[in-house]
């Protein structure tokens, strides 16, 4: 690997994506559990969810915007290509983002009738289920090898790039992963109500097991969609093997911690698990932004831009990190 400015900025974007998955992603996951709330403590489940995400979801959401901005600043050709090839799933993602956010605040602040609140609640929950799915299909499409770009920057692709077996499986995987992380977090949020906590513990265990099963399905379908990518992600040697064993070990440890009701440990492990998965995806993508035509190195913006962005991120982080720490301290310490 010949690491340069392009790799640095891509690494920052990947890190932002990973943080988005464990923060903003978990907010979507919480929305899924809102939609699926059931049993005698249905309303309590929804109350915990609302209380947990209300103060922080907008901040968490900015990570996604940040990824988008980095992508179009540093890899404009890839951004343009994605905009053309994946306009359908991304429009659905946008629709979901709008409806999720609107549904959530309107339910919370609507001063409306019970029926009104329920309608916006359903919108919030429904959009929380669909958005991660389409986000997942779009991410998989980028890895699927079926978005082609010719020398004149013309984009060729087909619907199956994001609506085939592989992207759909990844869509379900992403949805489940967000739900799983959210369930683990919610075990902590509900810590003053043991029965409620057990509701979320059950959800964490079930979704964790489903996630495990899905990872095999992803592996299987990836093999057919893009063997090169599949080998880099799931191969039996080197970094791929290390990453796989790492994810598997962390996943088992997370489940075990949930099972033993060690929720704080489980939270840390779940974060580690998701971050490793995203890192693995980034590793398997390398050296492409969009395989097989757009290489990271050749589609990056000029070095002047990349350097400035990296500098900007460094300076911005000085302001951002203490602010983030303060926010989580204010809202997430018991």
């Amino acid at each position: 690997m010949n690491l340069g400015w392009a790799e640095l900025v891509a690494g920052i974007a990947l890190l932002a994506l990973a943080i988005y998955a464990v923060t903003g992603g978990a907010d979507f996951g919480a929305g899924i559990w809102d939609r699926l709330a059931a049993g005698p403590r249905k309303q309590d489940q929804r109350d915990v969810i609302e209380k947990a995400i209300a103060p922080i979801w907008e901040t968490n959401h900015v990570w996604l915007i940040f990824v988008v901005v980095l992508l179009f600043s540093a890899f404009p050709n890839a951004f343009a290509t994605i905009g053309i090839a994946l306009y359908a799933p991304l429009s659905l993602v946008l629709l979901g983002i709008v409806l999720r956010g609107a549904g959530f605040v309107f339910r919370q602040y609507g001063h409306g009738s019970v029926a009104d609140r329920q309608r916006w609640g359903r919108t919030f929950g429904g959009a929380s289920v669909l958005t991660p799915f389409f986000l997942g299909t779009a991410l998989a499409a980028i890895s699927s090898g079926s978005i082609r770009v010719d020398a004149a920057d013309r984009v060729r692709t087909s619907v199956s790039a994001w609506l085939g077996w592989f992207p759909v499986t990844v869509g379900v995987f992403v949805m489940t992963a967000f739900g799983f992380v959210a369930a683990v977090y919610l075990c902590i949020e509900a810590n003053d109500k043991p029965e409620l906590q057990d509701d979320f513990r059950r959800r964490a265990l079930v979704s964790g097991l489903v996630l495990g099963a899905l990872s095999f399905a992803v592996r299987f379908t990836a093999e057919f969609a893009n063997p090169v990518f599949a080998r880099r992600l799931f191969g039996w040697q080197g970094t791929a093997l290390m990453l796989q064993t790492g994810v598997a070990a962390v996943a088992l440890a997370t489940l075990f911690a949930v099972f033993r009701r060690r929720y704080r440990i489980a939270r840390g492990l779940a974060v580690l698990q998701v971050v490793t998965i995203v890192a693995g995806w980034g590793y398997a993508q390398y050296p492409y932004v969009i395989a097989p035509d757009l290489l990271l190195a050749t589609t990056a913006a000029p070095v002047a831009t990349l350097r400035l962005i990296a500098l900007g991120v460094g300076v911005g982080a000085i302001l951002l990190i203490p602010s983030l720490i303060w926010m989580f301290r204010v809202f997430k310490t018991p």
């Binding site: 907008e58 901040t59 959401h61 900015v62 915007i65 940040f66 901005v69 980095l70 179009f72 600043s73 540093a74 404009p76 050709n77 951004f79 343009a80 905009g83 920057d153 913006a301 000029p302 831009t305 400035l308 962005i309 900007g312 991120v313 911005g316 302001l319 951002l320 602010s323 983030l324 303060w326 926010m327």
Partner: peptide, 24 residues
Amino acid sequence: MRLAGPIIGFPFSLEGFAFFIEAI
């Protein structure tokens, strides 16, 4: 965006940080 991204990306990145601070 393909043509202008590298030049307007920097102010947009700074805006991203402003969004963070604002939302937090």
